[in-house]
Design a protein around this nucleic acid. Structure first.
Lengths: 214, 214
DNA sequence: ACAAAAGTGTTTTTGTTACACCCATGT
DNA sequence: ACATGGGTGTAACAAAAACACTTTTGT
């Protein structure tokens, strides 16, 4: 059965990563300008699968954590109703290191959330909504781990939280809280980075899984 | 522009109300069996507007509080991909009193969430998800007020919370918390209901608006 | 020796939970 | 007078916030 109206369903993904202590969004360049990765469905596919496919094809970061954000209808779109199912993705810093050398892929660029260029349609609003959702999830889930590399220090994890929240956190309270969550474990290794005491390296106990707190 | 694939977009609404101290869902009867109110889009319309239209046309409770829940894709549906944008609605007990006499409307019936009949597709799962969302929102918003009549007692509000959460709350702590939220105000009137002290009646300070807590 | 980040506990404050009796009304 | 739900405060406990110094490394 086909809907009684011309309908254009698209998926858009807000891919986040922490780069240089900033929360950045990955944009792709189209002839018409910058936009979030995404596009129409192809054939009959699951929505989550379509989001992952677009992310993989357009950015190479197919391993990211993906979560549905909200669905928008744009009745004013040319050619009938446009429905956009928005997702956000968290790309681990680990994956960032491997440059997903764009083979025939659209040009892409990380952009600070605070200084996005002009984007297609309401993509800037979608990115802002995704940021709010992410920030609020920090308080009641272990979602921040999805942005970390496989091994990381507590100071790095704290910096990621601070970047997303836009406020600084107390070091001792942060460490107490995180360790009490029982979501990470020490690897026993240390990171020697610079002229100071080496930091203990940790890893997620259940990588890829986001736990809810309390 | 039309999507490259046969696509059936529908809206489904989970209409909640408190009836006889139980959380109930309003279902409509179709030739194929019971289902949530909803259906396909008609013409080019906003998604929220489509949800409200279906709710109004099929149940008469057009004034309910509406909120988007989640969007599901069902690739296995006959005739291509079916996409369902689910909403939930909170019908005030006040509106319930006025029977929206079904004029040519599909037959409808309130059903306890705990004992739903067999429903179309995954409508039971959608209702369960809506219930979880509602229960978690009680903790950090004033959403429960949307289920109350215009004037209500604190005991009634507490009973609504208890019904949704499935647990009993401490009377004094509940009242302290609610009054501290500054979301309701005493009307000065009292409700004389039965052989006991009359209760103070309250009303929402910002009816129709859901505030977030903290 | 100095600079720089890592690591570590305790006290204070705040919020949450537990808990029991008197009040106003209808019958 | 009694049954019924309405209304109220305080103490104990738990969680969150504030806070400063020692350790280990590289230069």
């Amino acid at each position: 059965m086909i809907g009684p109206v011309a309908l254009n369903l698209s998926i858009e993904v807000v891919p986040f990563a922490i780069r240089a202590e900033r929360l950045e969004v990955l944009l792709t360049r189209r002839p018409t300008g910058w936009r979030l990765p995404g596009g129409p469905l192809e054939g009959v596919e699951n929505l989550d699968a379509a989001a992952r496919r677009h992310l993989t094809d357009q950015t190479g970061f197919g391993g990211a954590y993906l979560e549905q954000l909200y669905t928008f209808g744009r009745p004013e779109a040319a050619g009938g109703l446009a429905v956009t199912v928005a997702y956000y993705a968290l790309v681990s810093c680990g994956a960032l290191a491997v440059d997903p050398a764009a083979d025939g892929r659209a040009r892409m660029e990380w952009s600070s959330l605070a200084a996005l260029p002009d984007l297609l349609q309401d993509h800037a609003g979608i990115a802002a909504l995704a940021h709010r959702r992410l920030a609020s999830k920090l308080a009641y889930s272990t979602i921040a781990l999805q942005l970390m590399p496989e091994r990381f220090t507590l100071t790095e994890l704290q910096a990621v939280n601070e970047t997303i929240l836009g406020e600084i956190l107390d070091k001792r309270n942060f460490r107490k809280r995180i360790l009490a969550l029982d979501c990470i474990e020490a690897t026993g290794e240390t990171a020697r980075r610079g002229g100071h005491r080496p930091a203990q390296l940790y890893r997620a106990k259940r990588p890829g899984q986001v736990d809810f707190i309390k």
